[in-house]
Design a protein around this nucleic acid. Structure first.
Length: 520
DNA sequence: CGTCAAGCTCTTAGGAGCTTGACGGTGCTCTAAT
């Protein structure tokens, strides 16, 4: 790897920080991460939520003479970053994704070497044409943003995350920087394994957010939870987020709160139309909403400074998700409250979500048998697109399940370069894949058990949380958790503030139109 | 795995009791390229 780190650059980074980014000082961790990647070392960095992780790769881009490739989990996140960079006067930036038309994509690929920042999804990196183009430009830094996704999504939901190691290898192993706000030592190991990094510098900073007080509260059932929720929402300073584990509940709770006199409440989940999602998000960011009831679809990349509370209406299924979600509160450093409501009934939804994620052995066998019959009925070679279409539309296999099975068929050499071999043993292969499923299920159950442990734990919540992430509490804040004692008045709203929160909703179309006018 | 609603069966027409099936977060890209 060419070393781009020349003498004097170490001084330069302060200058670049000032000139390009308008800051006079680095925040905790930033300098060390930047210096290490500029030294050509691979880095996995854990920096607490809201500490400016993007600077860690954006600044080096101005010292490196090669393009920086950033793998990002969400299209909206990519678009945000592109816009922010453009707003700072950076023109050499592109997001390679499905928003581009065929000709735009082609044009972008032709002039790929002229970009300083290239944003991509893990999925598009499975496109050999894209890889070929990237090979030619000699990528200087390979960044995985929100790198916990590798471990959290890669094994079952978005398997292309597991291919990033191969991608990086085929790009000639540029320096790699994996960034996240939530990773246990085991997750860091997993990220390392999946990225196929032998030597890596771990730069781990405390994931603690001392200005967020942690409250855990038991409820008898969902009705009881609704009452508690209403009390909290009435009393607490807004804005706030209410996390639910199902789409139905986000709508139910938003309606419930509205019916009980709470103003400016909305719901948000993955089943909504794109423009509605966009609208709700914008309204929330612009302080036009007090409460947003949502699934885990909401929040990644939300950098709203003044979120005052995050309430979990259901138990999250992983501590990582919990930490990510509460971490959206109090980015401005002001005191904020995280409330976790739980009851015995939570387990049901949690277990069903975990089990839905992976295909049952019967489904695996069904798919394998289907492939065999499919081959017999087709005169020519099995066409993967056609097979896929049949499996999803006729056999009604879940897309996520099919992707999982497909990944393992590729791993076992049954599918190679879109060619499907059919000389496999159905029983044997079913067993092989079902064993992976069983291992993953055990892993998921273990992660959920940790969440349940935190709930029943009789000692400090913060210490438990940090311990889970392999860290120790440095200093206990005054308002720590329900075990250590929280001064609630601190988080409650005043009459005046309540009045300020009045705002009338004019309907989807009108609101969207006014937002578009604003951005022009 | 667990719930809930719809549909079926039995037996004899209004309803009990059973089986079956759908439903439960998260998101990217779509197979072509001078």
């Amino acid at each position: 790897m060419s070393n781009i780190w020349k003498s004097g650059d170490r001084l330069n980074i302060d200058e670049v920080l000032k000139q390009r980014f308008g800051h006079s000082q680095f925040r905790l961790g930033q300098r060390e991460v930047i210096e290490t990647v500029l030294d050509g070392e691979h880095v996995i960095a854990v920096l607490p939520t809201g500490t400016g992780k993007s600077l860690c790769y954006q600044l080096p881009a101005y010292i490196l003479q090669q393009p920086v490739l950033i793998v990002s989990p969400l299209l909206s996140l990519m678009e945000d970053q592109v816009q922010q960079l453009k707003a700072k006067g950076e023109k050499r930036v592109i997001a390679l994704n499905s928003f581009l038309s065929k000709s735009e994509k082609q044009q972008a690929l032709e002039r790929l070497s002229t970009y300083r920042f290239i944003y991509v999804s893990p999925e598009i990196l499975q496109n050999p044409f894209i890889i070929e183009a990237l090979k030619k430009v000699n990528i200087g830094l390979f960044v995985v943003d929100e790198a916990h996704c590798i471990s959290q999504w890669g094994h079952d939901f978005r398997l292309d995350y597991l291919q990033l190691g191969d991608v990086s290898e085929s790009l000639g192993r540029p320096t790699c920087l994996a960034l996240t706000a939530t990773a246990t030592p085991a997750v860091i190991d997993d990220i390392m394994t999946q990225l196929k990094l032998a030597d890596v510098k771990r730069l781990i900073y405390s994931v603690d957010r001392p200005n967020i007080a942690l409250q855990v509260q038991r409820a008898e059932d969902f009705e009881h939870k609704k009452e508690l929720l209403l009390q909290y929402v009435r009393k607490l300073k807004s804005p706030g987020i209410v996390y639910c584990s199902s789409r139905m509940w986000t709508e139910t709770l938003a309606l419930f709160l509205k019916d009980h006199g709470i103003k400016n409440v909305a719901f948000y989940h993955g089943g909504m139309e794109q423009d509605q999602r966009m609208l709700i998000q914008h309204q929330f960011l612009q302080n036009q909403l007090n409460v947003i009831c949502c699934t885990s679809a909401f929040g990644m990349g939300i950098n709203k400074p003044n979120i005052r509370f995050v309430i979990h209406f259901h138990l999250p299924i992983q501590m990582e998700a919990y930490l990510q979600e509460i971490g959206r509160a109090g980015r401005d450093g002001s005191d904020s409250l995280a409330v976790l409501l739980h009851s015995e009934k939570d387990d049901e939804l949690a277990y069903s979500l975990m089990e839905m994620e992976l295909p049952h052995p019967d489904v695996i066998k069904e798919v394998l048998l289907y492939i065999k019959t499919f081959q017999r009925s087709s005169y020519e070679r099995v066409d993967l697109s056609l097979l896929e279409q049949h499996l999803l539309q006729i056999a009604h296999i879940h897309e996520v399940h099919w992707r999982f099975i497909r990944y393992h068929l590729e791993k076992n050499g049954v599918i190679h370069h879109r060619i499907v071999k059919t000389d496999f043993n159905v029983e044997k292969l079913t067993w092989v894949i079902a064993r992976v499923v069983a291992e993953r299920m055990d892993h998921k159950y273990a992660k959920f058990r940790a969440v349940k442990q935190m709930v029943v734990n009789t000692d400090c919540r913060r210490e438990f949380l940090l311990h889970y992430f392999g860290q120790q509490l440095q200093r206990k804040p005054a308002n720590c958790c329900d075990r250590c004692g929280i001064e609630f008045l601190h988080y409650e709203t005043t009459r005046n503030e309540q009045k300020q929160n009045q705002w009338e909703f004019k309907g989807w179309k009108e609101e969207l139109a006014s937002l578009l006018r604003q951005s022009e």
